[in-house]
Nucleic acid binder design. Structure first.
Lengths: 211, 211
DNA sequence: AAATTTCTACTGGTTTCCCGGTATATTTAT
DNA sequence: ATAAATATACCGGGAAACCAGTAGAAATTT
């Protein structure tokens, strides 16, 4: 599966994990470990001047944000494929990492053989997941789907325009109704989502896929 | 790969596609086609009273929103695995469908054999993609990653609290600074994202992964 | 050391939002 | 047919957001 030589880098704050991965990779001639890092900043420095094909990125570094690092990596070096490596077994976390440009998500309980297979897939420019991650993705948690309010057609319409940045008077004009009507809908939206204002409304509505 | 009997339903507005899929599935004894639909509403009625294991859902139905249908299906019948079937070859579209509870994404140029393999994977409760979709997901478009403003630490902090629904005075108190300072940061955020107000700010910031 | 960026803070004014209510047609569902 | 949900609209008032500026202190970068 692996072709040519893969330059691999790893970021993880646990030295043991770095050790283990290094030993593991040593057995695979097609993979060259070009760098191991325990923090984000040195990694970002490294990729500015060196080629890294695949990055295994622990996204739960203390005091840092794995997503930010991922985004920055892709900004500096778009051809680097980032594989998130994490204990976080939550659907929303996986989706967020993908949104930040990750090309795959591996749970830390991954088997060595599976890891190599995933690296190979990533090298070929393919999305890849560990099996456990695939299982999580196929099981939308009931928490995620619960508590999602039912919106009427009109409410969805108005929600959309609010998210676009239109004010109440502007929306009213657009829909040919009274601003007071639009305001009522807006208030109903805020109530249905149980949030204090539009800012929070847009946040939760976006999270729940309404926008 | 396929075990037992899979109850499959399809939604697609092109009769030809329905025909073709039906023919294709007829060759696979483990899959039973329990329903074909050209609109969302009849499908939703059907799943309210009948078991469907896997749903192939065309997400570009005229006058309907595939995401809404997907979300509704998962609400009514969480055990139904929804495979999005589409021509839309965009990363953001795929992510949105996953966010709405889909368990996989297949591009319409999928090979018959691959389709059956994907159905089998979905049946096992695993996330699944057609190969073309995997390729798209591994190539975050530069457009997506470009045009993303650089935010300072303070701005990120304030953005976060705005999204939580806090008002300017509340944030000021929390951070022990003047409300006027918070307002300045807020205005800088609105300017950096080139949006008219906080509602739009939260929308684009959420889309770009800041929230 | 100098330049740039970031964080801080202000004045004064307009618009919009948000809250407490109430209320009547029109659909939609039972 | 009757009940429930939806879309429409209003009043009054206080709080917050938004606009157009200016500007010094602190931290960072060059």
């Amino acid at each position: 599966m692996l072709t040519g030589n893969v330059k691999l880098a790893i970021v993880d704050d646990h030295p043991i994990v770095l050790e283990g991965l290094q030993r593991l990779i040593a057995h695979v001639p097609e993979i060259t470990m070009v760098g191991t890092f325990t923090e984000g900043a040195p990694l970002l420095d490294y990729i500015r001047t060196n080629q890294v094909d695949i990055l295994l990125l622990d996204i739960s570094l203390p005091g840092e944000n794995g997503m930010e690092i991922c985004k920055e990596v892709k900004r500096i070096s778009p051809q680097t494929q980032v594989l998130a490596l994490s204990n976080h077994a939550e659907r929303s976390m996986i989706l967020q990492m993908l949104q930040h440009g990750a090309t795959g998500y591996l749970l830390k309980n991954i088997a060595p053989g599976e890891l190599v297979a995933c690296i190979a897939e990533a090298q070929q420019g393919l999305l890849t997941f560990s099996k456990a991650a695939k299982e999580i993705m196929a099981r939308p948690s009931s928490v995620e789907l619960k508590g999602i309010p039912q919106l009427t057609k009109r409410e969805k319409e108005i929600l959309h325009w609010i998210a676009e940045g239109r004010t109440t008077p502007q929306i009213a004009e657009q829909l040919n109704v009274s601003p007071l009507t639009v305001e009522t809908h807006r208030r109903n939206l805020i109530q249905k989502f149980a949030v204090p204002n539009v800012a929070a409304l847009i946040k939760v509505a976006a999270q729940q896929g309404f926008i």
